[in-house]
């Protein structure tokens, strides 16, 4: 195990962490703002991958798919918002879990109806289809792109939340929605915007992941559990928590698999159990 091995594992862990981040950030902010647990969030990720593949197949343009697919997913999210999500907001966590669990089933079969049961691949764009060699390793350029994309979104979200007006509004509403409403923030509209943004990021994560993992009907359910774990470990509703959580889980799973293969599978669950018992509010809880 030389330096290049560690570098390779580091990049793999980063790339997995970034995907987890794109998914968990939407889930956690939606929870923090609306106290809504959306298990179907990962189904939107799956839809992102499938729509990306279709747009790319129809137009031959990867980058067009990269932009259009999150938009389509956002539209679907908006429809869900007005038909189900909004009216389930006050219904308590159990009913939300049930309804979105039902949605997982519905979306799963719709995808099977539309695209069939076979795994579908997506080629990385020509510009990124090569490998890059540096410091004694060669690594696919597309995966480096994913890492860069994730970091860019992570930093820009942090800047938006910490420095801008809308960021201040979101933080105020996470802390106390009633207070925010009394200060003249249109909380309902803010919820909708944030929900759509979360859906767009899930769609983006899906289309970004398609060239690496290819799209399958189980991809949503497979990523759902690690995403939920990230959100709970980090602290429901917290941006910093989602960043910390996705890095912890990404690295724990990647390095666990190479260093402690016999234990790796349960490491994440042990971590989650320990955190739920000792620090149920998560590592970096949202204030309020």
């Amino acid at each position: 195990m030389d330096a290049s091995f560690w570098l390779l594992q580091f990049l793999n862990a980063m790339q997995y962490s970034m995907l987890l981040f794109l998914l968990s950030i939407g889930l956690t902010v939606i929870f923090g703002l609306m106290h809504f647990v959306n298990l179907a969030h990962a189904s939107l990720y799956m839809l992102g991958a499938y729509f990306g593949i279709s747009v790319s197949a129809l137009t031959g343009q990867f980058w067009l798919a990269f932009i259009l697919s999150p938009i389509i997913v956002t539209l679907i999210g908006a429809i869900l918002y007005f038909t189900l999500i909004d009216r389930m907001r006050a219904a308590g966590p159990m009913n939300q879990v049930l309804v979105t669990f039902g949605l997982i089933f519905v979306i799963l079969d719709l995808v099977r109806l539309g695209w069939g049961d076979i795994a579908l691949g997506l080629d990385a764009p020509d510009a990124l289809a090569h490998t890059v060699s540096f410091w004694g390793i060669s690594y696919p350029a597309y995966r480096l792109f994913i890492i860069a994309l994730g970091l860019t979104i992570m930093i820009s979200m942090w800047v938006v939340l910490a420095r801008t007006q809308i960021g201040a509004m979101i933080r105020a509403s996470v802390e106390n929605a009633d207070m925010a409403a009394s200060l003249g923030i249109h909380v309902g509209r803010l919820f909708f915007v944030v929900f759509c943004f979360g859906c767009a990021l899930a769609g983006l994560a899906g289309v970004a992941a398609a060239p690496i993992f290819s799209a399958t009907t189980t991809m949503g359910i497979t990523i759902l559990i690690p995403t939920l774990i990230v959100v709970v470990i980090g602290g429901l509703g917290s941006l910093e928590g989602a960043i910390a959580g996705s890095l912890i889980i990404g690295f724990l799973e990647t390095f666990g698999a190479v260093l402690l293969p016999s234990l790796s599978a349960v490491l994440t669950y042990i971590l989650l159990a320990v955190i739920l018992v000792l620090r149920p509010q998560g590592l970096i809880p949202a204030r309020g």
């Binding site: 189900l84 669990f101 089933f105 519905v106 799963l108 079969d109």
Partner: peptide, 10 residues
Amino acid sequence: WHMIVGMVLI
């Protein structure tokens, strides 16, 4: 049938 079960649940 998953889809129908899901809709029944919702």
